[in-house]
Design a protein around this nucleic acid. Sequence first.
RNA 1: AGGCCCAUAGCCAAGCGGUAAGGCAACGGACUUUGACUCCGUCAUUUCGGUUGUUCGAAUCAACCUGGGCCUG
Length: 372
Amino acid sequence: MKKVIVGLSGGVDSAVAVIKLQEEGYLVEGMFMRNWDSSINNDILGNPNDPNEVCPQEQDYMDACEVAEKLGIKLHRVDFVEEYWDYVFQYFLNEYKNYRTPNPDILCNKEIKFKAFLVKAMEVGCDYIAMGHYARIQHHENGSTLLRGRDDNKDQTYFLSQLSQKQLSKALFPIGDLSKKEVRDIALKYNLNVATKKDSTGVCFIGERNFKEFLKNYLPSQPGFMKDISGNIVGEHDGIMYYTIGQRHGLGIGGAGDPWFVIGKDTINNVLLVGQGSDNEYLYSNRCIVSNINWMGKDFSGEKKCTAKFRYRQKDVEVIIKYIDKDKMEVCYSQKAKAVTPGQACVFYDGEIVLGGSTIDEVYMNDIKRQY
RNA sequence: AGGCCCAUAGCCAAGCGGUAAGGCAACGGACUUUGACUCCGUCAUUUCGGUUGUUCGAAUCAACCUGGGCCUG
């Protein structure tokens, strides 16, 4: 009997993952991860949690315990607070310091859930690890193929785009064929306490925060002006790293006309560039340079047509890609894309198949580089 | 000093005698394993710079005051 360790989070998805694996005849054990410690990590500003109440993490652990008991599986608990800080959060802060918009959850999967966790799971002894992601995987003799989750609205392959073949070879995604509704229905049928629990959001393991305040715990304010494209001062900001391209809220610019959006960052002069209108031309680009390439598909040379997703839950766009060098690609998209932002991932797809992941570095409109 | 114009919520702004549109911002919610986007809701009734008056009824008319702007000396 093959043994699987499931990352049991205390949510409904991983609980149903256990059920699916049991139905398929695996021996299942759970492993709960704790990766963030608010007091050790100085997570004070922007933290909505009442320090007197049971913290959400412990509630999650209790929920995981209850699920484990009900489904009759052993539950391990592991602590990666240090690893998370060193390998995910440092990167996260560094990217913000460079005025980019990082995606910590992609790194969390690469460094924690499918690395540190995998090591611990192997120590306990297992053939596979499994997570409650909405994604599908096919294992062949010469590798593994990652596919979008069946539920188009919940597909989480964007976050899995930096996993290596080695990592994928050990991974199972038992709920990838299900819709969110089906997952909840199964949980209800098994009378699980988490069946109607609200989906967790926010940075994985950290949780919901007032984002700007949260960043201020680690990155001090650097006040400056907001200017429009003509150079007129239209507002003030307290640090251009707190904003991302395409952002509308939090600018506080009132007055006449359409809403204002972040359209760029003048890092030299500490100026946040803003423009009016959701269709502002500076929001759009048609070419970008990506690096940190994790290609999962068949090797290719020259140009390749496929689709790409530049931001989680944003629709794919058709692109033509080509290598510039070993770890750098040019991505062209003639129909233009909105708010393509350095630091975010560019994930390539061929239909349902995930071809690979990368990180956006430079963004262009024709030959003009965007000040993103 | 004289003449003209303007004063509506944090900002922009409709209204022109019949009982305060709309937009921006903000806030709340939905959505969401990156708090980007998007969507929904709330937001002037001791109220229309102030006071007094005309009128059944005034943000809307009149007078004066205050505060801005412009023109002529």
